[in-house]
Amino acid sequence: MAKSVLLISRQAPWAGIGAAEALDIALAAGAFDLPLSILFMDDGVLQLLDQQQPQALEQKDLSANLQALPMFGIEQLYVAQHCLTVRGLADNPLALTAERVDDQRIQQLIRQHDYVMTL
């Protein structure tokens, strides 16, 4: 059985290329049909914010790549509810369908995967 990866994405989408490079790891796993889940945590939860205007910063829209995840077979998407809450986004709609998870569920997710990779 293929070994699984939990990718923890912790970078804000406007803080340089980190978030996009984390996402590329996920897309590559999808391209090779390998099991990978993404957990958005810390400032990474901001990637899921609706109504962003990255073009104001002359930046490419990361949400297009995020939307591509299911097409690449990456469907296990999670977002840390606590991290949304402390950023005042507890009830905000998300630009992507991701399961809101509490700390206990995150502990489980870590234990359920062979590798954890945080970027």
Partner: peptide, 12 residues
């Protein structure tokens, strides 16, 4: 950073 506090929250 929030590294430590985030890690402590999800420690099993």
């Amino acid at each position: 950073t929030t590294q430590l506090s985030s890690c402590l929250r999800v420690l099993s």
